[in-house]
């Protein structure tokens, strides 16, 4: 009887990049896991929380807790940022409310970022994936420093057949997305982005792998604006690729 997990797809993948969600389901299936998708889910509330609008973030956090309380099993999220929001951000959000804090803690214990779940929980590092060509990986800030997840995506990528994984210079530096930061402070955000793209070009890799959709749409948006040929892909896309 295979393990069953709950998918928290995140509002960005749901709305903008549903094919990443499909890739993720294939990856989880291949790791021996059955996937369920609670239909009531929307957004974890991080945009409002990060903006400081906690009274706006709270209803969405409560909604998310209610939706997933009706399910059992681990909750897998294809985003370090959203996973960090539920694991750490909710505890902050409900810090002064013992009732909701307890419910948030229970949820936090069930939440895993995709690569963290595959490697640390399932013990899987080789998914039989194939990706001909050069790849470079950018560790998103909330995944790297918020969750401390770095070894896991690297292990997974190291087992991708025909992929030549090269190091991204200044890899740990922020790409400048930062949610509403990139809208509120576009000048600063643009400088970070410029540097990230310049570093990507140094690797001569046509493909940048990330594990967070915010960074993906930010960097891909910059590449597209500049007419650059590189593509940014989610790690689930790489891991689900067989051909």
């Amino acid at each position: 009887m295979p393990e069953t997990v709950q998918l928290f797809i995140t509002c960005l993948i749901d709305s903008f990049f549903p094919h990443i969600g499909e890739a993720m389901v294939r990856v989880l299936n291949r790791a021996g896991v059955r996937v369920e998708f609670p239909a009531g889910q929307t957004c974890c509330g991080q945009p409002a929380f990060n903006a400081g609008l906690r009274s706006e973030a709270r209803p969405l956090a409560e909604h998310t807790i209610r939706v997933f309380e009706q399910t059992t099993g681990d909750i897998i999220i294809p985003s370090g940022s959203c996973a960090a929001m539920i694991r750490h951000g909710y505890l902050e959000l409900f810090r002064d409310d013992p009732h909701w804090l307890a419910r948030a803690q229970a949820l936090a214990g069930r939440v895993f970022e995709l690569t963290e779940y595959l490697v640390d929980v399932r013990g899987v590092t080789d998914l039989g994936a194939r990706w001909p060509g050069r790849l470079t990986y950018y560790p998103s800030c909330h995944l790297l420093r918020g969750l401390g997840v770095d070894r896991q995506p690297r292990l997974l990528l190291a087992h991708v057949r025909e992929a030549e994984v090269v190091e991204l210079p200044e890899r740990d530096d922020c790409c400048g997305f930062g949610g509403i930061f990139s809208v509120e402070h576009p000048e600063l955000s643009a400088e970070f982005l410029k540097r990230k793209i310049a570093n990507l070009e140094k690797t001569a890799a046509p493909t940048l792998v990330v594990a967070d959709t915010g960074c993906l749409m930010h960097i891909q948006g910059g590449l597209t604006r500049q007419g650059k040929p590189q593509r940014v892909v989610h790690i689930a896309e790489v891991l689900s690729n067989q051909r």
Binding site: N50, C141, F181, E184, H185, F192
Partner: peptide, 8 residues
Amino acid sequence: QASSLCGA
């Protein structure tokens, strides 16, 4: 507000 919350 002038932070991307990158955690560096």
